[in-house]
Amino acid sequence: MTPDDLPVVQRLEALLYPDDAWSTEMFRSELADQAGTRHYVVAVAPPESSPPAAGATEEIVGYAGLAAAGGQGDVQTIGVRSDRRGRGIGAALLTALLDEAARRDCEVVFLEVRADNEAARKLYERFGFTEISVRKRYYQPSGVDAIVMCRQSTPPRKRTTGFGPVGGADE
């Protein structure tokens, strides 16, 4: 995601999360630290017109963001345009975030999801996230609870050679 994407992302954010949409300034602040602790991506697809209009370009149909520092990642946001849901876009966005978390050596990744968003919860469970707590009335002004979920990275398996582990006293 770049600052040039923000007008479209902001419109999509307002449609998806009308009660608690992030402001353009919030997104700008997140993007300002992409080289440091943040990673934001967009999903693009060709317009769905048959046949595509002359000169039609790809359009943003989803976006996602990650905060990562100190071995911990936090999924900040994932949004997919409602008419494009159920096509694997959310899974692709989450995969991109988890790949980045691994690249940044995050041992654990957290997220909050609305308790009433069953589809998102199922997606996160498919990716190995488990519920660890509930934040009562987290989403405002609706008062919907947030389910806090966590995904631990799989520790690397120890390789063995001979009678001891690689890097052990036998080497």
Rank of each mutant, 00 (worst) to 15 (best):
V41P: 00
V41A: 10
V42P: 09
V42A: 10
V42C: 08
V42G: 08
A43T: 10
A43K: 12
A43C: 10
V44C: 14
A45M: 11
P46C: 04
P46N: 03
P47S: 06
P47M: 02
E48G: 09
S49P: 00
S49E: 13
S49R: 06
S50M: 07
S50C: 01
S50V: 05
S50P: 01
P51G: 03
P52F: 06
P52V: 06
P52M: 14
A54E: 15
A54M: 11
A54G: 14
G55K: 05
G55Y: 03
T57H: 10
T57L: 14
T57Y: 09
E58A: 14
E59S: 12
I60H: 04
I60P: 14
I60N: 05
V61S: 14
V61P: 13
V61L: 12
G62T: 04
G62R: 07
Y63D: 15
Y63G: 14
A64N: 07
A64F: 07
G65M: 10
G65T: 15
L66C: 09
L66F: 04
L66T: 13
L66D: 09
A67V: 12
A67I: 11
A67P: 06
A67Q: 11
A68M: 04
A68D: 02
A68S: 08
A69D: 10
G70I: 09
G70K: 05
G70E: 11
G71S: 09
G71Y: 03
Q72L: 12
G73Y: 01
D74C: 02
D74H: 10
V75R: 13
Q76M: 15
Q76S: 14
T77P: 10
T77L: 08
T77S: 13
I78E: 12
I78L: 11
G79P: 13
G79D: 14
G79K: 08
V80L: 07
V80G: 01
V80P: 09
V80S: 09
V80R: 06
V80M: 11
R81T: 07
S82Y: 09
S82W: 06
S82G: 13
D83Q: 07
D83A: 05
R84N: 03
R85M: 00
G86S: 05
R87S: 03
R87Q: 15
R87I: 04
R87M: 11
G88I: 00
G88P: 08
I89K: 08
I89C: 12
G90K: 00
A91P: 06
A92G: 08
A92F: 02
L93K: 03
L93E: 09
L93T: 13
L94S: 11
L94Q: 13
L94M: 15
T95G: 11
T95D: 15
T95Q: 14
A96R: 15
D99K: 06
E100S: 09
E100T: 12
A101F: 07
A101D: 07
A102K: 04
A102I: 01
R103W: 06
R104G: 02
R104C: 05
R104A: 06
R104S: 04
R104D: 04
R104Q: 08
C106G: 02
C106K: 00
C106L: 04
E107V: 04
V108W: 12
V108Y: 14
V108T: 11
F110Y: 13
F110T: 15
F110Q: 15
L111E: 08
L111C: 10
E112D: 13
R114T: 15
R114N: 07
A115Y: 01
A115I: 01
D116M: 00
D116K: 09
D116G: 07
D116F: 04
D116A: 12
D116H: 04
N117G: 04
E118W: 00
E118R: 06
